[in-house]
């Protein structure tokens, strides 16, 4: 029994390493450095950083109070709201992109355009898609961090003279800091690797909506495998770093 289980575990680990290793092995180090500083990859890195900074910032800015509400308040519809916030995570990627296209194009497109804001097929759209798909992780991880704080501490702080905001600032935030930080990293990492919804909602246009995952797709499509592999290695490195940091910070939620 023990040997069979350990063999299965070893096979799974080997499979993951084989998939990841094939990308790393494909690009010689010298070529990787040259490719990394190519105009196209640098553009993809810059666009990825800019869009994910916006989407992650927004997801955390709104996600933290939302997670606080789910964690601390008992209200009618809390369970339904909780379930609805899980939807972006389980929605098929293509369906998410299509639904975003319908909302921001078909339904709200004209309204938004009248105010000078076009979302589909733009770099703004990339952030919107990332925000939509990553908000579940933001809320989940922050809620897990807040839930882990015993309610008694908050009660005692209230009786010692703290209002609700002061309790959040002086007790909850310091105690949940690592969890919130871990959640932020995971949200950012997920947004950075998002492809399907961006492809559907914003399209894959070279040097325009070319974030790192789109770059992998575009370069693979035209047979430029070295650039595709370089972008993949960057994404893998970021994913690995995020995962390690997430674990080190004691993050909980979807991934733990």
């Amino acid at each position: 029994m023990r040997s069979a289980c350990l063999l299965c575990l070893a096979l799974l680990v080997a499979f993951v390493l084989a998939v990841v290793g094939s990308c790393v092995r494909y690009v010689p180090a010298a070529t990787f450095v040259t490719t990394l500083f190519s105009e196209e990859i640098l553009f993809a890195i810059r666009l990825s950083l800019a869009t994910t900074a916006a989407s992650t910032g927004a997801a955390m800015l709104i996600g933290i109070p939302a997670a606080y509400a789910l964690s601390r308040y008992r209200f009618r519809g809390a369970s339904l709201a909780d379930t609805i916030l899980d939807l972006p995570m389980v929605f098929p990627a293509v369906a998410s992109g299509f639904a975003l296209l319908l909302l921001f194009g078909y339904y709200l497109g004209d309204e938004l355009a009248a105010h000078g804001w076009r979302v589909p097929h733009t770099q703004h759209g990339i952030s919107v898609a990332q925000f939509f798909c990553a908000l579940t992780i933001a809320v989940r991880t922050v809620k897990a961090a807040l839930d882990s704080i015993p309610a008694r501490l908050l009660d005692v702080a209230r009786t010692l003279g703290s209002g609700e905001w002061r309790v959040f600032r002086r007790i909850m935030l310091p105690l949940a800091r690592n969890g919130i930080l871990a959640g932020t990293i995971m949200t950012w990492s997920y947004a950075l690797g998002l492809f399907g919804p961006i492809m559907m909602f914003c399209g894959a246009t070279r040097m325009r909506t070319e974030v790192l995952p789109v770059s992998v797709y575009l370069n693979t499509a035209v047979g430029d495998l070295e650039e595709a592999a370089a972008a993949t290695v960057i994404l893998l490195a970021i994913a690995l770093g995020s995962l390690l940091l997430f674990r080190r910070l004691g993050g909980r939620g979807y991934l733990m």
């Binding site: 209230r158 009786t159 010692l160």
Partner: peptide, 8 residues
């Protein structure tokens, strides 16, 4: 609670 002057 913070206005009641009650220790807990």
């Amino acid at each position: 609670p913070e206005a009641r002057g009650v220790g807990y």
